[in-house]
Design a protein around this nucleic acid. Sequence first.
DNA 1: ATGCGATATGAAATCGTTTTCATGCCATCT
DNA 2: AGATGGCATGAAAACGATTTCATATCGCAT
Lengths: 327, 327
Amino acid sequence: MSVSIKDVARAAGVSPATVSRALGRGPVSDELRAQVEAAVRATGYRPNLAARRLRSQDSGTIGLIVADIRNPFFTAVSRAVEDSAYRAGMRVILCNTDEDPDREASYLQLMHEERVTGLILAPTRASYEQLPKRQVDFPVVLIDRAGPPGLHDSVVLDNREATATLVAHLVSRGYRQIGGLFGNASSTGAERREGYEAAMRQHGLTPDARLTAPSSAAAQREMQDWLRAPQRPRALLVSNSLLLIGVIRAARAAGLRIPQDLAVAGFDNESWTELVEPGMTVIEQPVEDIGRTAMSLLFERLKTPGLPVRKVVLSGRCIVRGSTDAA
Amino acid sequence: MSVSIKDVARAAGVSPATVSRALGRGPVSDELRAQVEAAVRATGYRPNLAARRLRSQDSGTIGLIVADIRNPFFTAVSRAVEDSAYRAGMRVILCNTDEDPDREASYLQLMHEERVTGLILAPTRASYEQLPKRQVDFPVVLIDRAGPPGLHDSVVLDNREATATLVAHLVSRGYRQIGGLFGNASSTGAERREGYEAAMRQHGLTPDARLTAPSSAAAQREMQDWLRAPQRPRALLVSNSLLLIGVIRAARAAGLRIPQDLAVAGFDNESWTELVEPGMTVIEQPVEDIGRTAMSLLFERLKTPGLPVRKVVLSGRCIVRGSTDAA
DNA sequence: ATGCGATATGAAATCGTTTTCATGCCATCT
DNA sequence: AGATGGCATGAAAACGATTTCATATCGCAT
């Protein structure tokens, strides 16, 4: 089988305890340390993490649960998370829920069984009610979507501010019939919708929001009907970049020019939003910051468990492009 | 501390062995099984995976090492991998190498320490020489990039065929001065370059290839100069979607219209390649198939270790759009 | 010279499971 | 009736590390 610490000990002529100390931190004479290192090289020894975890009760693993890694927002965040983990010498277990509460529950269970050191979680809407009941024995940092207040640390975008910015921008460009298309699966969609509706009212306008399943195809289907309706919007606020793709497709299929027939503003500053004609006005989320900050919160809480629950609200940056030029 | 199998055993009035058998598969009377299940619910017991792994010598974990999860190709593949793993009741550890051999080596080491059940790896170029030396005690499936022949199972795109298709297509559209831009970090870039050069010669044309670091920004810089050169290409074959973005930016910055001044063909059928004006002619890679197939190869090899080494070569699909219209 | 503290090392316990081995029981066959 | 075999169960070993506890050695102060 695999070579164990005992084999190394024998090869080095010392006890297993000494090998462990030489490899970790512990008082070992330089002489023995050298012997151990030589023995490690000679035997090709690699510590067994399962055994180490079992004994030291520290998994050195952090869980990352997102809706779908193919959503560019989560892609970028996960990359930042993985980087932080690597630097801290920790591992990342990646999980996609597809916004499915059962799958999420199953992954939360897994996190317990793995005895993860911490968890970065983009909760489904269902877990909003589940989380408080569920007793977790590791720190959790929520990203993208805040959970029940005061329960877990979180890093979120200021969605109200972002939507207000977009609405104000569209209004300033002369648009009045501004619709909103939001994902129906996440609390982020809901928050952006609320922000949108509040902003619209503040401008004395009537909100006109629709919800859709969080995929380009679903968004395209939803828009197909909507754009044919007599009271169709002249401008559209779109909750994320996947939906935005569906919107653009639907607009083109309906023969509507952007922005002349339909202005469009969205979220997530993907490279393509600049390349497409016209460029898309979007709110850029600080994706790397979100991932990094989430990991910082996690590490700080690990170091100081007594810390009060913190919610970090980051501002997006509005990038204006041709898709919202005045009609 | 956490509740262990002993606590459950006590609560159920049975031995730990019986609890283990009741929860796994093993002969247990229905009566005791019910008692155990009740005790599990009562105590909130969750098995400790570290302990289970240590004893059963099966980590139930597969490693996934890619260059950068933000490359849409790897994003899609990783999602397929995670799905397969979930269905098989296994976990996925995600690692990004950034094409850095040291980081890759460190992650390979980690895979050993985790005693992973299997590994899906997109090897860096350096590992082409390293892999044969390195002794691995778990099955490895290479994706996107084949390693030294006959060593590991692999799933790759038929790069020669794909590039030949693109070159033939461009030629049929009347282009002669066809350049090629390829990533310098991966063997995929190298293969596509070779395929491109071979195809060019077959058509009696002179290849004109350039290499660049695998990022949009680097590609843009490289193109900036190239497009100013007197003998600049009239058409361009681009090795992946990140580079493609850089190419489009550079073309626009140089005031070159696509395809009138510069035809462009690339890889990876991202949504945006259809939305951008003109649409991009690309080779669509069967990303989900690649991920799924990789996992299948892995599982088959686990079941039947004696299997000969297999290399699955999948064909891309050429999607013709406006970016390669005749000049 | 003696005792004491510090320090390096080894022996053994421990982490929480699974698995082997032993045991007792019951049914079945000769 | 006694031997045999199968089956459910429990006791205990084992997985491979870390950590606690005990011990030997050494230097130094008394």
